[in-house]
């Protein structure tokens, strides 16, 4: 009996936390008539009209936003890992760089990036990087690198020291250990790191807002375009948000266990 009460309580907590998302999915499936019904309908005949509209409409370049977000997030994540994986290996297996590099990179996240909006905007304007995917990738690297670095350090920490030592004794070069021995041992952690970097970049809003005009607009900024001077297009904006959010939502199921692993620092027994 008490078990049932606990289950009800936990379902309520989950419902409250996720109501904004659930409501968006409901709203996105309502027809134009159902949308304005009072009281808001909870049971109705679902329609995919709004999804069709955003993918085919000539005024909102939703497909462009989607591919921009996808390309920017993927490229940023790959380069974040390429830059941080060797450094993480170096910190763990050479035991150096803990005094300067590590705090430098991890403290990067506590700098409010709005501070750099002006120099980035002005220098991008000078070199023509405004409204380009490359420009956004460069900035998103600053967002993603601290995340990737910390996660990879934690994951590489769990690689048994004996493996690396044995490889060293067998005469493998450090570069070879890094390229052929480490990645297969932590492949699923690298995937998790990729996914988290991907989500961070996918979700970034401030710089996408400042640095994009039309060509490089990402989903987070693109979704706000459905709020027009003539009013909000509730159905379309809901469909756009639902698609943009379902991606991180689904990925969460994969990275969840790595989040705990990373946060508990391998200390859970």
């Amino acid at each position: 009996m008490t078990r049932i009460i606990h289950i009800i309580v936990v379902i309520l907590i989950i419902l409250v936390l996720n109501i904004p998302f659930l409501n968006v999915i409901l709203t996105s499936l309502k027809s134009k008539v159902d949308l304005v019904n009072y009281p808001p309908k909870l049971v109705f005949k679902p329609t995919f009209d709004h999804y069709k509209t955003i993918f085919t409409s000539g005024t909102f370049h939703f497909r462009l936003f989607l591919s921009n977000s996808f390309i920017i997030a993927s490229v940023t994540s790959i380069f974040s890992i390429l830059l941080t994986l060797p450094a993480a290996y170096y910190i763990i297996f050479f035991n150096k760089g803990r005094k300067i590099l590590l705090p430098l990179v991890t403290n990067l996240r506590s700098i409010p990036l709005i501070i750099f909006a002006m120099p980035i905007y002005l220098s991008y304007k000078t070199v023509g990087l405004i409204d380009t995917r490359l420009g956004l990738v460069l900035i998103h690297l600053l967002v993603d690198i601290p995340v990737a670095f910390v996660l990879l350090i934690n994951f590489i920490q769990n690689v048994p020291k004996e493996v690396v030592e044995a490889a060293r004794i067998d005469g493998a070069s450090e570069r070879r250990i890094l390229i052929t021995i480490i990645p297969p041992m932590i492949s699923s952690s690298i995937v998790a790191t990729f996914i988290l970097c991907f989500i961070y970049s996918w979700n970034e809003f401030l710089f996408a807002l400042i640095l994009s005009i039309k060509k490089a607009t990402t989903l987070t900024v693109g979704a706000t375009l459905f709020i027009t001077a003539w009013g909000v297009q509730w159905g379309e904006i809901s469909a756009a948000i639902a698609i943009s959010s379902i991606v991180p939502f689904v990925l969460t199921f994969y990275v969840q266990k790595y989040l705990i692993e990373a946060y508990s620092g391998g200390s859970k027994e």
């Binding site: 936390l17 996720n18 109501i19 904004p20 998302f21 409501n23 968006v24 709203t27 989500i199 996918w202 979700n203 970034e204 809003f205 989903l219 987070t220 900024v221 979704a223 706000t224 909000v232 509730w234 904006i237 809901s238 948000i241 943009s244 959010s245 991180p248 939502f249 990925l251 969460t252 969840q256 989040l259």
Partner: peptide, 18 residues
């Protein structure tokens, strides 16, 4: 954990819809 994975800007818009 789902809410922390969503873009804060989109989460804001979701609440505007709600």
């Amino acid at each position: 954990l789902a809410p922390i994975m969503m873009a804060p800007s989109l989460y804001g818009l979701m609440n505007r819809i709600l």
